[in-house]
Design a protein around this nucleic acid. Structure first.
Lengths: 188, 188
DNA sequence: ACCTGAACACCGTTCAAGT
DNA sequence: ACCTGAACACCGTTCAAGT
């Protein structure tokens, strides 16, 4: 007994995320992660390729945390729920969140989220191409807002003002979608 | 002769930005910057506080590069020009650009840009409070898009598609502004 | 006033060695 | 199979010393 692995990729990612949340991205060193797991830094290299790989996995873990809304909700409520869920993740992991804007949206978890959004938009009445474009813009807007909020770009404004900003953004998106679906429903 | 300072904050920032552009943010080390200036790393500490201060200045330099559009253009053309200018900066400095979303928009250069946008929005017919809110949302959307583009989130889509995405975003913003100004012009 | 040499604590990563 | 010790090249930063 006791010769089974003491660490694995999941525990390494969890330790890294915890450190990032508590002390910032710069505090995520191989040594700090190993310390938290009661192991030497060198032990990590059996489970992750290197530090870049480790950070990729941490970012991916953020998306895994994102709950997809129940499929029986109407599409617009699904999108609103998703928006709030993204903001919640950003507030929970403000130091890691900005990395989401800095890597290709082609990982398994980002596909999973994208597919859910595209499905909602198709249900809203957009055709496939329009839905994919709308998804790119929608995710850019929401990620940009959440990253700004988490990164402190809005520091100096209290939470109420920021919530109103976000409500304004939702309204803007809702009216754009209404316009887009009306156009595709009555192809004049 | 020769006892005048060989380096100053401006040359340090320029060297750092050049390294970041050529080899990425991680390559911006005190040693690399010093090398490029023909000096030892320790010499930098007389001109900048530390590495965090150096990076703050580099980000600020990005905003300094942003040309504010001529004041005789109509407000909507000014905003469009600004949007393209932001995208140009993001493409020129893809590694540094994402940092703009990660720090408070309270520096002198970010004020300068914000004031220009707010002025355009007031000219468009928004009152002061609405203009400030619209500016926050507008900058978030544009920075988010440009950061996504620069960071490679859209990798896999060719430039034409991305340009069309941006055009779509401009249209969305234009129609939202039209709606907002109409509402404030006819206070029913 | 400005730059350097020497030194310190800390990085990421490798590789052979232990169990 | 999994972890460690030792080693390497490289970080950021300080401080006293040189000119």
């Amino acid at each position: 007994m006791g010769r089974r692995p003491r660490i694995d990729p999941a525990s390494i990612v969890a330790a890294s995320l915890a450190i990032a949340d508590q002390r910032g991205l710069a505090a995520v060193t191989m040594q700090a992660v190993a310390d938290r797991l009661g192991v030497t830094p060198m032990a990590l290299y059996r489970h992750v390729d290197d530090k870049a790989d480790l950070l990729d996995r941490v970012v991916e873990a953020l998306l895994t945390e994102l709950p997809l809304p129940s499929a029986d909700l109407p599409w617009d409520q699904r999108l609103r729920a998703l928006g709030q869920a993204v903001r919640a993740i950003a507030r929970r992991h403000p130091h890691v969140f900005p990395l989401l804007l800095q890597r290709p949206a082609t990982t398994p978890e980002s596909r999973r989220v994208r597919d859910a959004v595209v499905a909602s938009l198709i249900e809203a009445g957009l055709d496939d191409e329009a839905a994919r474009r709308a998804e790119r813009l929608l995710s850019t807007i929401i990620l940009g807002f959440a990253a700004s909020e988490a990164g402190g770009r809005f520091r100096g404004h209290n939470k109420r003002v920021i919530d109103e900003d976000f409500a304004c953004l939702e309204e803007l998106i809702a009216s754009a979608l209404q316009h887009a679906t009306a156009a595709s429903k009555r192809p004049s």
